[in-house]
């Protein structure tokens, strides 16, 4: 399957690149993004946000839905997950990128997933 190989190569590229690469995400990217978003050790988004099929979610932050409509600018969404305190100094949202809770690649996978909501 040449197509499969290409997509594997693209994923590898995206993972190793320092700048975000906005290739069309694969299902694997999206699944990985969901896994990172739900995992307590990684994004732990459910602690504060209602989203998707997440159970026992918190309600500190807004519900994560219609993400593509609400955040059409992918780069801006990236920056807000990277460090929301730059946009709202009172926020309690952790600066996931700046504090190295998530890597650039991991935030990009989460955005791949968020854009399916």
């Amino acid at each position: 399957m040449r197509k499969g190989l290409i997509s594997v190569c693209l994923t590898t590229l995206a993972l190793s690149a320092t700048a975000p690469v906005f290739a069309e995400p694969t299902q694997a990217d999206i699944d990985r993004g969901k896994e990172l978003a739900y995992s307590r050790k990684d994004g732990n988004c459910l602690a504060c946000h209602k989203m998707d099929d997440g159970k026992l979610t918190g309600n500190i932050g807004p519900e994560l839905a219609d993400m593509k409509a609400r955040f059409p600018d992918r780069e801006l969404l990236f920056k807000r997950i990277w460090d929301e305190t730059q946009f709202n100094p009172m926020t309690v949202m952790p600066p996931f990128g700046r504090h190295m809770i998530l890597s650039k690649q991991e935030i990009n996978r989460i955005i791949d997933y968020l854009y399916t909501l």
Binding site: L56, G58, P94, H99, M100
Partner: peptide, 21 residues
Amino acid sequence: GQLNFSCASCHVQNPGKWIRA
């Protein structure tokens, strides 16, 4: 901490809300 919370982040800014369960 790495999560960037003060005591007040939860207990002044967000009491009455849920953080997960």
